[in-house]
């Protein structure tokens, strides 16, 4: 059975090829690892959509990214003597369950409100949020943050973990995470030149 990567190029017999690339990745071959992850991403997206058709595209992409991160963390548990796809789908299944639980938690505690364009009269409160948007500048600014602050931004804003989950992952207390996040936002404003 042939599988295709995202760019449409055939990648050979999928199962065997992925097993071979995974074994190479376990040995530290970064190029094989990138080929593998690129090749399996479309499969993960399709499988996630099939199992959770009501989810939005951004939610599905979060699940796919969480699956790739989990694969990275547990790549030592794959054995070349076993098929690769069931191992991969096992990880996806767990990350999908996490995604569904997270959505249910959010839905239970959030209410959709109208998007008011102006809430306060002050000019500073009514800046166009795209005015200073520069993704690369933001990424550079985040990379320039001290370790603790950068970790807080990655976990709380990019991965959208709860404070409790981020505390469990980093070993930091919730209070320390809040302080790190507050300082990170101040630093980012300064680095991006938004302090007035």
């Amino acid at each position: 059975m042939a599988f295709r990567s995202g760019d449409g190029a055939a990648t050979g017999t999928g199962e065997d090829e992925w097993a071979r690339l995974m074994a190479a990745a376990q040995g530290g071959d970064g190029a094989s690892y990138v080929r593998l992850l690129t090749g399996i991403t479309p499969l993960l997206r399709r499988a996630a959509w099939r199992r959770w058709p009501s989810a939005g595209a951004d939610v599905i992409e979060d699940v796919v990214q969480d699956t790739l991160l989990s694969l990275h963390a547990v790549r030592h548990t794959y054995s070349p003597s076993r098929p690769f796809t069931p191992w991969l789908m096992g990880i996806l299944k767990h990350r999908l369950a996490d995604g569904v639980r997270k959505q249910a938690r959010r839905g239970a505690h959030e209410v959709t409100v109208a998007n008011f364009e102006e809430t306060f009269g002050d000019r500073v409160a009514n800046k166009d949020e795209d005015e200073h948007y520069d993704r690369e500048a933001l990424q550079r600014a985040i990379a320039a943050l001290p370790d603790g602050q950068r970790r807080a931004v990655e976990l709380l804003k990019m991965k959208e973990l709860s404070l409790k989950e981020a505390a469990a992952e980093t070993g930091m207390s919730i209070a320390a995470l809040k302080v790190a996040m507050h300082r990170a936002l101040k630093s980012l404003r300064r680095l991006l030149g938004e302090d007035e």
Partner: peptide, 20 residues
């Protein structure tokens, strides 16, 4: 972070691991 960028980052951190 975009998925392609994530894959690049993971590829750069593909240290050898001892399989179970």
């Amino acid at each position: 972070m975009e998925t392609e960028r994530l894959i690049e980052v993971l590829g750069a951190h593909a240290e050898p691991v001892r399989p179970l």
